[in-house]
Structure formats: structure tokens, C-alpha cells
């Protein structure tokens, strides 16, 4: 037997060992969420927490929670957190960040909060190039109040306040937030991703990571719009709701990078 053959045979008898490949991120709190089964808020929370873990930001992060289904988000992250008035999270985040420039401040807002009542605050926060990160959950409906029409409701979509389907002649058209904010010079990063399947979830996480990196590099305002589902108010099973998001939301809200400043592009190439 040659020495090489001996080594091979010895390797064969080594037992494979078990490696931890996924565990609940540390930046999540132990509290159970109140979200409905299959609601993608939970996925978005998890991705943010994974990114905070990976970038080592748990000790520096401050969350500003919205009014909407995610009103209790501060209970679900193990980071400092505040609860804003409806739509005002970006203004509150501005105050926090200006006096705590070394902290990492992010808002978590739904479509009613950000695109309806809080549209002025988010636009001006972007205009100022405020160094904060916004995670924007677009599920085309008001969840917490029980399924009313949102600014992001799709034409024809039935909600409790558009019972015959959204009529654009009466109620206008969906708001394209990622595109809208990409047009502002203070915006460093504005992209849209979806949470409807694992491949897109992985892409969404990368975008969230880049958004936080934009803040760390002080490049300005960063936002990730996440197409999400609302099985309860859409009246579907969680799996059907993800299919509906894929088939109806993505055509209305195309996925993509609407603004990525050069500094972030360079970083991406270097990786």
C-alpha cells in the first residue's frame, strides 16, 4: 500500500460531521410575532435581522416602527426601537440620526404609512440625503385596519374600500415608490425586490445589505421596496398569496435597481 492510498482510506472512515447552516438571527427578539400565518412581514424582519447580524450592527441599530401591521416591530427585533406616529417614521429617524450620527437608523414602513400619509416625510428625508435606511413593505392593501385600498392597490383590485375593484378614474393609479424616490438626488439606493419565493428572498436580502452599507458609507438615503403578501386581507392561503404577488404585483411593480450610486456599484464589483 502506498502512502497516498493509506491516506485516502483513512479519510473514508472519518465520519461526516454536522454543521449548523441556518439559525434564527440574534438581532431578532425571542417574542413570537402577531403576524398572520404566512405573512411576509416575518420574512422581511428575518432578513433585516440577518443583515444586522452579518454586518455587526445589532449594538448600533435603532429601529423606527410604523403604524400599520408592523406597529409592534420593536418587540420583534433585539435592537433599540421607537414607535412613530403614522407616516412620520422618516422624520423621527432624521431626529434620531442627526443627534446620534454613529448609530444605524432604519425605518420599517408599510404602504399606507409611507406612500399615503407619510409621503411628504419620506420624500423630504430622501431629498435631504438623510443617512437612514427605509425598508418599505408594499402589499397593495391596508392590513391592520382590515383590507382597505392603499395608494399601491392595483387597478381592479378588490378591497373593502374599493369593493368593485380599484377604479383609476375615481381613485387614481398605484404609486411606484422605488421609481419615485430614485429620481431624487439625495437618494443613494432605491430598489425593488420581492419576497414571493426563496430565490427572490435571497435577492431581497442582498439588497437590504446594500442599503445598510449605503448608510454605513454615508452615501445618503437608501430604500428597499419589498413586494409582500397579505394572505388574510387578500383572502387567500399563504401559498396562493405568494402566487398572486408574483402574477399581479410584479407586472405593476417591476423588480429592479432604480438607483444605485457609483460608490455602491464599485463595492459590488469588488466583492
Amino acid at each position: 500500500m502506498t502512502a497516498l492510498a493509506f491516506q485516502r482510506s483513512e479519510k473514508k472512515i472519518l465520519k461526516p460531521i454536522e454543521k449548523l447552516v441556518y439559525e434564527r438571527p440574534h438581532s431578532l427578539d425571542e417574542n413570537h410575532t402577531h403576524y398572520c400565518p404566512g405573512c411576509t412581514h416575518g420574512i422581511a424582519h428575518r432578513l433585516i435581522a440577518e443583515v444586522l447580524d452579518e454586518l455587526g450592527l445589532q449594538e448600533k441599530a435603532i429601529l423606527v416602527a410604523p403604524v400599520g401591521c408592523a406597529v409592534l416591530a420593536y418587540n420583534y427585533f433585539d435592537v433599540d426601537g421607537a414607535e412613530a406616529a403614522h407616516g412620520r417614521a422618516p422624520a423621527m429617524a432624521t431626529g434620531l440620526k442627526r443627534v446620534n450620527p454613529d448609530s444605524v437608523v432604519f425605518t420599517y414602513q408599510g404602504d399606507g404609512d409611507l406612500a399615503s400619509i407619510g409621503i411628504a416625510e419620506v420624500i423630504h428625508t430622501a431629498v435631504r440625503g438623510e443617512n437612514i435606511t427605509v425598508i418599505f413593505i408594499n402589499n397593495a392593501i391596508y392590513g391592520m385596519t382590515g383590507g382597505q385600498m392603499a395608494p399601491t392597490t392595483i387597478p381592479g383590485q378588490v378591497t373593502t374600500s374599493s369593493p368593485n375593484g380599484r377604479d383609476t378614474a375615481q381613485t387614481g393609479y398605484p404609486m411606484q415608490i422605488a421609481e419615485l424616490l430614485s429620481g431624487l438626488p439625495g437618494t443613494a439606493y432605491s430598489v425593488r425586490r420581492s419576497l414571493h419565493d426563496t430565490r427572490h428572498i435571497i435577492q431581497a436580502k442582498k439588497a437590504i445589505r446594500t442599503a445598510f452599507e449605503a448608510q454605513l458609507q454615508e452615501l445618503g438615503f437608501s430604500i428597499v421596496e419589498l413586494l409582500s403578501s397579505c394572505p388574510t386581507n387578500w383572502g387567500m392561503t399563504p401559498i396562493k398569496a405568494l402566487d398572486w404577488a408574483r402574477d399581479n404585483m410584479i407586472p405593476q411593480y417591476p423588480l429592479g435597481d432604480y438607483k444605485v450610486v457609483d460608490e455602491l456599484k464599485k463595492k459590488r464589483r469588488n466583492r
Binding site: 449548523l20 447552516v21 441556518y22 431578532l28 405573512c39 424582519h45 428575518r46
Partner: peptide
């Protein structure tokens, strides 16, 4: 969505 799975 509930981060309740650990994988080895």
C-alpha cells in the same frame, strides 16, 4: 416568516 427553523 417566523424564523422557527434551524438547519444542520
Amino acid at each position: 416568516p417566523d424564523a422557527c427553523i434551524t438547519v444542520y
